[in-house]
């Protein structure tokens, strides 16, 4: 119930280099980390670059790492830290830095483009799509995604191995593949696009070792690993490693 002075360490710099800089800054009741960053900007570091928009955990802009954990700054309450704790704020460490807390997240947009979009079913005009709730429920969970890319940032496949960025779409976009593959009206298969197979062959599903860090950091609490990645792995197994399913499909297609 009061105001106090906190010790912040904020990463300042750009692609050529930089480092953590110390600040003492006032904190009021009920504030979040983003408030403090804004206060720094207003009072001591006018040129501090930070990306934000909604301050309500819905735009996905203010992703950063607070005490080493990928988080939305606007959803990280100051009250979770002790008053004498040093709070370290850095940009996301998986993407190239632009300046201060701002990173270049275009990796994610490139990956988004690599996932073939929804294939409209033949003979059903837009506006005539009818789906039952139980059929869309599963993919609705994935549509809560706010594209903050914290999952992409945390995933060790690319965070710890730059060279894997080429082959691996990351949890957010593998989840997109799962969403479309579970979509009741997606006609990809009829058009010859096998999303189950391409999840593994083209989007690098096999790199994921289901260690669940994406799930741990998702601010929307999407069960990315349990509900998207593992089911997608099982679907890939149907196609690639399960002779029984393969045989069953063959027989059914003949009849």
């Amino acid at each position: 119930m009061s105001t106090y002075t906190a010790h912040f360490r904020v990463w300042r710099g750009d692609a050529d280099g930089g480092g953590l800089r110390d600040y003492r800054v006032e904190v009021h009741d009920g504030e979040v980390v983003l408030d403090i960053i804004h206060r720094l900007q207003a009072t001591q570091a006018g040129d501090l670059a930070v990306r934000w928009n909604c301050k309500a955990g819905k735009c996905g802009s203010c992703s950063a790492e607070v005490n080493g954990r990928p988080r939305l700054m606007c959803m990280t309450r100051m009250s979770v830290f002790g008053r004498d704790e040093t709070i370290t704020v850095t940009p996301m460490r998986t993407f190239p830095v632009v300046r201060d807390l701002v990173t270049d997240v275009s990796f994610n947009y490139d990956k988004a483009r690599e996932v073939p979009s929804f294939v409209p079913p033949e003979g059903v005009a837009p506006g005539e799509y009818r789906m039952l709730q139980e059929d869309v429920e599963r993919s609705q969970e994935f549509r809560k995604c706010i594209e903050c890319f914290l999952c992409q940032d945390t995933c060790h496949v690319v965070r710890d191995h730059e060279e894997n960025k080429k082959a691996f779409a990351g949890p957010r976009f593998l989840m997109r593949v799962a969403e479309l593959d579970m979509h009741p009206l997606d006609a990809a298969e009829e058009q010859g696009l096998d999303r189950k197979r391409s999840a593994q062959d083209e989007h690098g599903l096999g790199y994921c070792n289901i260690t669940k860090c994406c799930t741990e950091v998702c601010p929307e609490h999407i069960k990315i690993t349990d509900n998207a990645l593992i089911p997608l792995k099982e679907r890939a197994v149907d196609r690639k490693y399960d002779p029984l399913v393969w045989l069953g499909d063959k027989i059914r297609r003949r009849t």
Binding site: R93, V97, E162
Partner: peptide, 20 residues
């Protein structure tokens, strides 16, 4: 230099900054 120490990423020498 690989992983979080790769060129182009924010220059932070520590391999992680978690305090928990």
């Amino acid at each position: 230099r690989h992983g979080v120490l790769s060129a182009g990423r924010a220059a932070i020498a520590a391999r992680h900054l978690r305090t928990d």
